[in-house]
Amino acid sequence: MESQDATVRVDSWIWSVRLTKTRALAAAACRAGHVRVNGEKVKPAQSLHPGDEVRVFHAGRERVVVVAKLVRKRVGPVPAAECFVDNSPPPPPREEVAVVAARDRGAGRPTKRERRDIERLRGQ
């Protein structure tokens, strides 16, 4: 853990607290404009300070976190959770997966009756 007066690069911190899998993904997210610090888009080398609000759009959802501690090296899940306050909205509910008509491999083309059943399942 670092002292509170030091600063850390935003891409390094996002990776260190396990918001992204790799530092390269964190840097790419910064360059693409998917990371905002205190409401402003940032470059990967932007410095972070305790109390900054970081918004990361990654993996289809937005994470909103407030920096509590600065770390330079990647830490485990429990210490990582202590480094930020998570203010993210809850993830959207998973949609029910529709049943897909599956045929056995090598069963040949469907018969007319099977084709109609498949179309009925698909809602056509």
Rank of each mutant, 00 (worst) to 15 (best):
V67H: 08
S12D: 04
A81F: 09
E40S: 10
V17A: 07
R122M: 13
G39Q: 05
R23N: 02
C30L: 10
W13G: 03
G106V: 07
R18V: 13
A68F: 04
K112T: 01
P92W: 09
E62K: 06
R61H: 10
K112F: 04
V65R: 00
R113Y: 07
P110W: 11
K43W: 06
E2L: 15
V64G: 05
V37C: 13
V78H: 14
H58T: 09
R63P: 00
G106I: 04
K69F: 11
E82R: 03
R61E: 14
A32G: 03
S3E: 14
S47G: 01
G51F: 08
R116S: 06
Q4H: 10
E2D: 12
R109A: 14
R94G: 09
A26Y: 00
G76T: 14
A6E: 15
D5L: 07
W15C: 01
S3A: 14
A24C: 04
R61L: 11
L70N: 08
E2I: 14
W15T: 00
E114D: 15
A24L: 08
P90I: 05
A101V: 15
R36L: 14
K73T: 14
V10S: 06
T7W: 03
D86H: 01
E40P: 00
R113T: 15
W15A: 01
S3I: 09
R23K: 14
V97S: 07
A26R: 00
Q46G: 03
A107W: 05
V37T: 09
E96H: 05
A24W: 04
V37I: 13
A98M: 07
P77I: 11
A68Q: 15
I14G: 04
P90Q: 10
P92S: 14
R113L: 13
A32P: 05
V42L: 02
S47I: 00
D104H: 08
A80I: 12
L19W: 12
E2S: 13
R63F: 12
L25M: 06
D52I: 04
D104V: 13
G39F: 05
K69H: 15
R72M: 13
L48K: 02
G123D: 11
V100Q: 11
V100H: 07
P50S: 07
V67Y: 04
S47F: 00
A45S: 10
V67K: 10
E96L: 09
R18P: 10
R120F: 05
V100P: 02
D5Q: 12
G108W: 02
A26P: 00
S16I: 07
V67F: 06
E114F: 11
A98L: 07
S16E: 03
A29S: 03
V35N: 08
A80K: 11
R115M: 13
I14N: 01
T20C: 13
P44S: 01
S12P: 02
K112M: 13
R23Q: 09
A59Q: 05
A98Q: 10
V78P: 05
R116K: 15
V99F: 13
P89Y: 02
G39D: 04
P92Q: 13
R116N: 09
S88G: 05
R55G: 03
Q46S: 07
V78Y: 12
